[in-house]
């Protein structure tokens, strides 16, 4: 109440006539029961507006917590991408290692095949002369002096190894050497 009196006194100081007229001014009225129904009207209006806002949200606007959670989601995506990147690197390294090991194995196998192939080739490549010579020696072993052939180097080891009795002769030779 003091506030009302203070305001009336302030007005009287500025303009006594205006203060008098204003105090006589009748209050304006509203339709009967207006304020009783106003609250319900406003609450209904608010609910309609809230429903419309929700519709707007569904149509195109991001969710209420979209921006508040955006930072976390972006960071998670970055971490995930980093993890996938590492995995990819590891995978690439594994493939490189595998290729290296496979290459080594292939080189070893290849070398082995080549060595074997070269040996066979060497056997196959034995001169026709030697083959014929071996056949001849096999057929006429009793007439040939192998000791003499060895000492004079007429026949090489490749040829002499094909002769069944050659190892025995070589053994005899060794025994002979020991006897000396």
């Amino acid at each position: 109440m003091n506030k009302r009196i203070d305001i009336e006194n302030e007005l009287k100081e500025i303009s006594p006539e205006t203060a008098r007229l204003l105090s006589d001014l009748p209050g304006q009225s509203v339709p009967q029961g207006y304020f009783d129904t106003l609250e319900a009207q406003i609450m209904a209006q608010v609910k309609v507006q809230a429903a419309l806002d929700q519709l707007d949200d569904i149509s195109d606007a991001p969710g209420e917590d979209y921006f508040s959670s955006l930072e976390d989601r972006v960071l998670n995506a970055i971490h995930l991408e980093a993890q996938v990147g590492k995995y990819r690197k590891i995978k690439v390294l594994n493939i490189v290692s595998f290729i290296k090991y496979a290459a080594v194995v292939l080189v070893i196998l290849g070398s082995a095949v080549l060595i074997k192939y070269n040996l066979v080739q060497k056997e196959d490549d034995m001169p026709v002369f030697d083959q014929a010579y071996i056949e001849y020696l096999k057929k006429n072993i009793d007439d040939v002096d192998l000791q003499m052939l060895i000492q004079t180097d007429v026949a090489n080891d490749g040829v002499l190894n094909e002769i069944p009795s050659y190892p025995d002769i070589r053994h005899e030779d060794n025994v002979f050497d020991h006897d000396h």
């Binding site: 007229l21 001014l25 009748p26 304006q28």
Partner: peptide
Amino acid sequence: YFDEQNALNKLK
């Protein structure tokens, strides 16, 4: 709903 009295109406 305005109470029509000439002087007071002018004041308003």
